[in-house]
Design a protein around this nucleic acid. Structure first.
Length: 755
DNA sequence: ATTCGCAAAGTTTTT
DNA sequence: CTTTGCGAAT
């Protein structure tokens, strides 16, 4: 296999790089995965043993894709590829004792961790008024990402929530360790800390993993950075690939500076820029590129493509969210009906999950198949968690969260009072809940009997630990009485639950088939814990994909719709006032736009029903940053959609409008603005004043016809001006349709200058 | 022990 | 408009 076949010079440079640090700045659609896999194949060809190579990704899906692609060009080579978390779990199993754990430790998912946290809050008896468990959780998470143990963590003085977290964190961590459990952050933190504090271990792992590849490096957090760094000292062959412009997880602790400072961190680094895009049309790429050019915190990249220009990107203003959803559904239905495209060619992206509902409704009405990524997840369902909790407790008898979950499920008459006594006993003796249940002798007859019944079930199941996973699970749902309990129910939802349990059993059987060998239970549970729901959504089936813009990363679709480009939603309200967060929102939109191969439509609704109330919207400020002269800007006729005939037409199932059909044979009921609008760029008053304060910008700068932006009402043009000096007043016609008057010396109006 | 009802809150979520 | 959690009521 020629690993260099059909590579561009830049790609070839990256693939041929062997020793020393390497930074691959890969723009969207630049063939990054291909480069990475070919580079691994090349390393192998150079005689480097597979065991010395480590490829770290952020998602199981990315790891799986890499694995498959490598299998094609270098079959029979087993390079370890997986997520950071899976790698840390594997490492931590071997060195569990160093973190006070045993090899069979459990990985707590978010809900397990929440329960442990609640317990911790109750234990230290603090008053959370003025803050929330979520806040505490995020502070603790932050501390762990910074590799601060409970002893190290010192909040800034005067930070009330931080002070509470300082008191809760030690108890939370004590619970985790005594449960022989870790949360997601711990997986990284434990490994990072043991690498930091144990030079011998660090050296031996560095020696073992001589060639490390980290994908999506722009999304690494401090702990992941520390791990990658620690393993690249004696063998500094760290290859980072990523794109600063696609860093969208800053709010989760990812530090974009890791990639921006890579060249400082690793001297003599070879930097390769992959700037040619093989995915999108020229028009799409140009729009995305111009948007992201507004970010300050980035490394310059000159994106280009040899692909055709394609259709202009559409920017559509719909009267309402319903019009938006219906129009999109109608467009898709028409394209599918005429055979022009398949449903799977389409994706719809939104900023928040709550926006999927309207789109789903419309797609259903137009009979378009779709899948949503991802609301309620399989492994989060009650019945699935219940069954898995039995297995968790069998694998790790100290898993108290699992114990509490199943001890009375199905109900055996073990109530809160009994459990409180058991926990008290457990705390005094330093026992797990399970062990305390065995030893406690101070319970009344009834409670004692009930608890004994549960313990008997547990002991019986323990006998099957040596068998196959499926057999163990089957015994579990049977012996525990859980399946019986579900089947005896008349509720419709319990029928579905039985089916889900069956599905779980089937999956267990498949796991047995694919993972023969020892420790099936432990490996299965780890797999489940580290699985995510975006992993298994189905790109193959013929359905339209609906997802948040975050979930869209790494994917591509022939036709993409980005909806609800409105202030408050995109950028999101809580990011609006912070420049750093605003840039992240812009990157998020950049990611969304660059998913599109052939067609891209960006839209907003002029009014939107949100949280039960009808609101006027303001178009996203990002829309002002797009090259409108090259786009197809579409404004619907105001008022055409008003009742009564709107309602009526739906009842007939007769689609009586076609707000933006682009087929020539249809008559669009919208007026299309020809591409004559000048491009304009948002310029703040401060910039116009040469960096000085915005206050005192002369009202003289405003002229009739000028494009202006208002933080509340959005963009518009000055219809007329009157008055003098301080009283000079502008009447502004906003794009949202509203007209307002402002005294220029007091209003937050910003001029936008034509370019 | 389950069910009901009301109040409160409501980003994004690779693991 | 929704979902969720807690306390009261059966």
């Amino acid at each position: 296999m020629d690993v260099l076949a059909s590579l561009t010079p830049a790609q070839r440079t990256a693939v041929l790089h062997v020793d020393g640090p390497l930074l691959v700045l890969a723009g969207p659609g630049s063939g990054k995965t291909r480069v990475v896999t070919h580079r691994v194949a090349h390393l192998l060809q150079q005689g480097i043993p597979a065991r010395h190579i480590l490829a770290l990704t952020f998602t199981n899906k990315a790891a799986e894709e890499m694995r498959q692609r490598l299998a094609r060009i270098a079959p029979r080579e087993s390079v370890w590829m997986g997520t950071f978390h899976a790698f840390c779990a594997k490492t931590l199993r071997i060195h569990a004792a160093m973190a006070g754990l045993t090899e069979n430790f459990s990985i707590y998912d978010t809900s397990d961790s929440d329960k442990a946290l609640k317990q911790a809050i109750a234990d230290v008896n603090v008053n959370l008024t003025g803050t929330s468990p979520e806040r505490i959780r995020s502070i603790i998470s932050w501390a762990k990402n910074q590799l601060m143990s409970p002893d190290d963590f010192q909040p800034r003085s005067g930070n009330a929530a931080g002070e509470l977290a300082r008191r809760i964190y030690p108890e939370y961590q004590r619970i985790l360790v005594s449960n022989n459990a870790v949360d997601f952050d711990d997986l990284l933190m434990h490994v990072a800390i043991m690498l930091r504090e144990n030079p011998e271990l660090r050296g031996s792992l560095d020696e073992r993993y001589r060639y490390i590849l980290v994908d999506e490096y722009q999304d690494t957090n401090a702990a992941q950075y520390a791990i990658a760094r620690a393993l690249s000292i004696d063998h500094p062959n760290l290859a980072a690939t990523g794109d600063p412009d696609q860093s969208i997880y800053g709010w989760r602790g990812a530090d974009i500076n890791n990639i921006l400072d890579f060249e400082k961190d690793f001297p003599h680094v070879q930097v390769v820029r992959l700037e040619q895009n093989y995915r999108s049309t020229k028009n799409i790429l140009r729009v995305a590129d111009q948007l992201i050019a507004n970010n300050r915190k980035r490394k310059h990249k000159a994106l280009f493509t040899d692909n055709p220009a394609g259709e202009p990107v559409r920017l559509v203003a719909y009267p309402s969210e319903r019009d938006e959803a219906d129009s999109i559904a109608q467009q898709i239905a028409a394209a599918v009906r005429t055979g022009k495209r398949q449903a799977r060619d389409f994706a719809i992206f939104y900023r928040i999950n709550a926006l999927s509902r309207q789109l789903e409704q419309s797609l259903r009405r137009f009979n378009v198949a779709y899948q949503v990524v991802k609301g309620v997840e399989f492994y989060q369902r009650k019945e699935v968690k219940d069954v898995l909790a039995y297995l968790h407790l069998l694998n790790n008898p100290r898993h108290d969260v699992a114990f509490f979950r199943i001890v009375n499920t199905p109900s055996r008459g073990i109530g809160p009072a009994t459990l409180a006594k058991v926990r008290e006993f457990a705390l005094q003796r330093g026992l797990s809940m399970l062990e305390a249940s065995r030893q406690i002798d101070s319970l009344n007859g009834r409670a004692r009997k009930a608890l004994a019944r549960f313990l008997a079930v547990y002991e019986r199941l323990s006998d099957h630990l040596a068998g196959s996973l499926e057999e163990l699970m089957r015994k579990t749902v049977w012996e525990s009485g859980y399946l019986e309990y579900l089947e005896s129910s008349d509720y419709e939802e319990d029928v579905q639950r039985v089916a889900n349990v069956q599905e779980l059993l089937t999956a267990a059987g498949e796991f047995d088939d694919h993972h023969p060998g020892d420790n099936a239970l432990e490996r299965y549970l780890e797999n489940v814990s580290l699985a995510s729901d975006t992993d298994d959504f189905d790109l193959e089936s013929d359905q339209v994909s609906l997802m948040t813009m975050h979930s869209a990363k790494g994917l591509e679709f022939p036709v993409v719709y980005v909806v609800a480009a409105e202030q408050g939603l995109l950028p999101h309200e809580r990011s609006r006032h912070d420049e750093t967060q605003l840039e992240e929102e812009r990157r998020l939109m950049f990611v969304a736009l660059t998913r599109a191969e052939h067609e891209l439509q960006i839209s907003y609704a002029q009014k939107r029903m949100f949280r039960g109330e009808q609101r006027h919207t303001v178009p996203s400020s990002f829309l002002m940053e797009l090259p409108r002269e090259e786009m197809n800007v579409i404004q619907p006729n105001v008022g055409w959609h008003e009742p009564p005939w709107e309602e009526k037409s739906w009842d007939d199932g007769d689609i009586s409008f076609d707000i933006n059909s682009f087929d020539d044979d249809d008559t669009p009921q919208v007026k299309e603005t020809p591409a004559t609008k000048p491009a304009f760029k948002l310029t703040t008053a401060a910039q116009m004043a040469g960096g000085a304060s915005a206050v005192g910008v002369s009202p003289d700068q405003f002229q009739t016809g000028m494009l202006v932006h208002h933080p509340e009402y959005g963009p518009g043009t000055i219809a007329s001006l009157s008055g003098k000096d301080k009283k000079r007043t502008a009447t502004v016609q906003f794009f949202s349709g509203e007209e307002k008057r402002f005294q220029l010396s007091f209003s937050p109006l910003t001029p936008m200058k034509a370019r």
